[in-house]
Nucleic acid binder design. Structure first.
Lengths: 125, 125
DNA sequence: GATATAGTACGAAAAATTTCGTAGTTTTAA
DNA sequence: TTAAAACTACGAAATTTTTCGTACTATATC
């Protein structure tokens, strides 16, 4: 169970890597720039920092280095949730769940998916 | 719909104010120090900053000022959830809900409370 | 082969957040 | 009535995170 707590910027990049599997700095920077202006060297520096921290792996075989995520999506998100729940929901994940759910438009499909997860949880206990 | 995005430290303090209703710096600092070391003037400064930002209200009638939250608990938490969901769950609150739920031990009571919320949501749509 | 283009490395500035020290007042208590 | 204790104000240091400029090297293009 790793314990990475990526910063917001790091998280943005991890999302992209989890989605794409692997990417060059150029590719990542292009995606980021669809949302907001980020300088190329800013992104590059971030990736280097993340590499130093061990959050990503870097393949330097070709001139433009290819990065992939080391941090595991599920674990990382669980860590973030846990921090978030402690910060804003008195440590109760159920509080977060109820508030997030109550404040969202949900489709029939999503709700039945959720209900089947609940059934699973009920059988576990 | 306000759009406050409190920092982590501010959030810690808001939680306390939402819980207690109103409190002096001393009271808040004492509570914070149950969890970790924080200097008194650190907490004081934070409250002053929050006051400047309009996150809290300050009653200066007596020498030790009494603070209360202006930021609305529900709105503030919804804002935080929304940012969090964008940052880490591709904008899908349901993704967050599923992951948070799947990773938590939940009591029978909590689960049935959750189910009744789902029923309400189903009737709405 | 000269020049423009596209990379990496990395120090350091900038920005945001957190922490604290010091000065000055008021209150309490001996 | 004086010393200690408890406040506020506030500048500024410290820390963390983000951003960028500059130097340097490799590749592509004309």
């Amino acid at each position: 169970m790793n314990n990475f707590k990526p910063t917001d910027s790091e998280m943005e990049i991890l999302q992209i890597l989890w989605e794409k599997g692997a990417a060059s700095v150029r590719e990542i920077n292009d995606i980021l720039n669809e949302r907001r202006d980020v300088g190329y060297t800013t992104t590059l520096k971030l990736m280097q920092i993340m590499n130093d921290k061990g959050l990503v792996l870097r393949d330097t075989a070709s001139r433009s280095h290819i990065y992939s995520a080391v941090a595991i999506e599920n674990d990382t998100k669980n860590n973030l949730i846990s921090d978030f729940v402690n910060l804003a929901f008195q440590g109760s994940a159920m509080n977060l769940v109820m508030q997030a759910l109550g404040n969202t438009k949900s489709s029939k499909d999503e709700l039945s998916e959720l209900k089947s997860l609940i059934s699973k949880l009920e059988n576990k206990s």
